[in-house]
Amino acid sequence: MMKKRQYNLVNIIYNDLFFYGKQQLFLLLLVLTSAMLVILVTYNTRSMIMDREKIFLEKDALDTEWRNLILEEKILSDHSRIECIAINELQMHYVDPTQNNMFN
């Protein structure tokens, strides 16, 4: 009777890759390296895009705050408002030019 020979699949793959397929193994490593670099670049690009969007949102918020501060400054520096506060709260009044005595 003939004995059936069993082959070890791991040894066959090892022999094929390292003794007969060095170019194919090298190309496989290049493809895997390229795929990992594509994943890394895509991740970094998406992170930068998200950071850019956050910066634009912050810029818009700061622009809105700046416009509100400019409006508040204009309202607070309005002459009629200042005059009203001077008369009502500080009891100031206009000086009559006839009562003005500069040299005593």
Rank of each mutant, 00 (worst) to 15 (best):
K4F: 04
R5Q: 06
R5F: 11
N8D: 15
N8H: 08
L9T: 03
L9K: 02
L9P: 04
L9I: 12
V10L: 11
N11S: 10
I13Q: 06
Y14W: 07
N15M: 02
N15S: 00
L17A: 03
F18I: 11
F19R: 01
F19W: 03
Y20M: 04
K22H: 11
L25W: 02
L27Y: 12
L28W: 10
L29G: 06
L29E: 09
L30A: 03
V31F: 09
V31I: 08
V31G: 01
L32Y: 07
T33L: 13
T33H: 05
T33P: 01
S34M: 02
A35M: 07
A35E: 08
A35S: 05
M36S: 11
M36V: 06
I39Y: 06
I39Q: 14
L40A: 11
Y43D: 02
Y43L: 01
N44Q: 15
N44L: 15
T45D: 03
T45N: 08
T45G: 00
R46L: 10
R46V: 01
R46D: 01
S47V: 13
M48F: 14
I49V: 12
I49N: 11
M50L: 12
D51T: 14
D51V: 12
R52S: 08
E53L: 15
K54S: 07
K54C: 07
I55L: 14
L57R: 14
D60M: 10
A61M: 11
A61E: 15
T64R: 14
T64C: 09
T64H: 13
E65H: 05
E65N: 11
R67N: 10
R67F: 05
I70N: 00
L71D: 04
L71C: 03
E72Q: 05
E72L: 04
E73T: 02
K74P: 10
I75P: 00
I75Y: 00
D78A: 04
S80A: 12
R81E: 04
I82W: 00
E83W: 10
I85V: 13
I85F: 07
I85C: 02
N88L: 13
Q91P: 01
Q91E: 04
M92Y: 09
M92R: 10
H93M: 13
Y94I: 07
V95W: 13
D96F: 10
N100Q: 15
N101V: 14
N101C: 15
M102A: 01
N104W: 13
